[in-house]
């Protein structure tokens, strides 16, 4: 990268990195064993699920949409995986594509209904939130499925390097998402649609293929998140990821993605995920009460967004 590009990256992500560092220092000073290699490894191995989902959510938000069904889609994809592997005794390599396919179908449905028929994605995905969760319960008969060691390898640290395959894939997804957003025509269209869909249409560009693709991508990433969570827990939980959509939206907004569409960064969302994960782990280290955890988490989310707003204002004034 050129010096200028570094400078731009520093301005864009410096604040978020600062928040992460401050959190690490605060928890390091207040708890006995926080700043250790094992804690960092444990954080790294917990974030893949939320990371996958936040990448998809970022793209959806940039297009001016929202996807409330991500948590249910995660649960559905892991239920498909679990049922195929336990009831039908499929091997992992055969069950994973079907599980990802179930995610992409949910995404396709969300995309087609909201884009082609101009129904707000808020309501379409709210419907999918219930449909996918209900289907999950039907598939699993509302029972947790124990898969044991067959899926573990994806979620446990590799020998040699301390991170799991799921983490590596999640980081790869973040980079690919950022590339897609900033370096491709598709990414430009996403930003344009989120800024003003009407203008895009008047320019003779069809917006629905882009919107449908974005929801399908989000669905497939939910499938990957389901795989990551199932591997981490070795168990399929029909109640998995209830409320995860809010954590994902929080991560995106902390990372500077606008809920109004047209502005956002996948790498920023990754920082958002990191901030949430460090906060969660740090508060558990301190052993503070549940109520305090919620209050502190809420304050940090607002503070992080506030810092980001300051940065944006500073930059637009300076430029």
């Amino acid at each position: 990268m050129t010096g200028q590009a570094w400078k731009r990256a520093a301005v864009q992500y410096g604040g978020l990195l600062g928040v992460v560092v401050v959190l690490l220092l605060v928890f390091g000073l207040t708890s006995d064993n926080f700043l250790r290699r094992s804690t960092m490894i444990s954080i790294a191995n917990q974030i893949p699920d939320l990371t996958f989902i936040a990448v998809g959510m970022t793209l959806v938000l940039i297009c001016g949409g929202i996807d409330l069904s991500v948590g249910s889609q995660l649960a559905l994809a892991s239920a498909v995986l679990g049922v195929l592997m336990t009831d039908f005794r499929w091997p992992l390599w055969a069950a994973v594509p079907v599980s990802l396919f179930s995610g992409s179908l949910c995404g396709l449905w969300n995309g087609v209904v909201s884009a082609a028929f101009r129904i707000p994605s808020f309501i379409v995905t709210l419907g999918m939130l219930e449909i996918a969760r209900g289907t999950t319960k039907v598939l699993t008969d509302s029972q947790s499925l124990y898969l044991g060691s067959s899926v573990e390898w994806f979620g446990v640290p590799l020998s040699g390097i301390p991170v799991s395959p799921a983490f590596l894939l999640a980081v790869g997804t973040v980079l690919a998402g950022q590339f897609l957003l900033t370096q491709t025509v598709f990414g430009r269209y996403c930003v344009a649609i989120g800024t003003s869909e009407e203008t895009v249409r008047l320019s003779g560009i069809r917006s629905w293929p882009v919107l449908v693709s974005v929801f399908v991508i989000s669905g497939i990433l939910c499938g990957l998140a389901g795989l990551a969570q199932t591997a981490r827990l070795s168990t399929v939980d029909p109640n998995a990821a209830v409320g995860l959509e809010l954590a994902a939206i929080a991560a995106c907004v902390i990372g500077g993605t606008s809920l109004m569409g047209g502005r956002g960064s996948v790498i920023g969302s990754f920082f958002g995920v990191l901030i949430i994960a460090v906060l969660q782990t740090g508060l558990a280290h301190l052993g503070v009460s549940d109520a305090s955890k919620q209050i502190i988490t809420g304050c940090v989310i607002v503070a992080a967004v506030f810092l980001d707003a300051l940065r944006t204002r500073f930059r637009s004034n300076g430029a």
């Binding site: 064993n33 444990s42 917990q46 947790s144 939980d237 990821a241 558990a284 280290h285």
Partner: peptide
């Protein structure tokens, strides 16, 4: 909750 417990237990183990 399962996922929540894994996060909390991981912190307990390193603390």
């Amino acid at each position: 909750e399962m996922s929540r417990a894994s996060t909390v237990a991981a912190s307990m183990l390193s603390e």
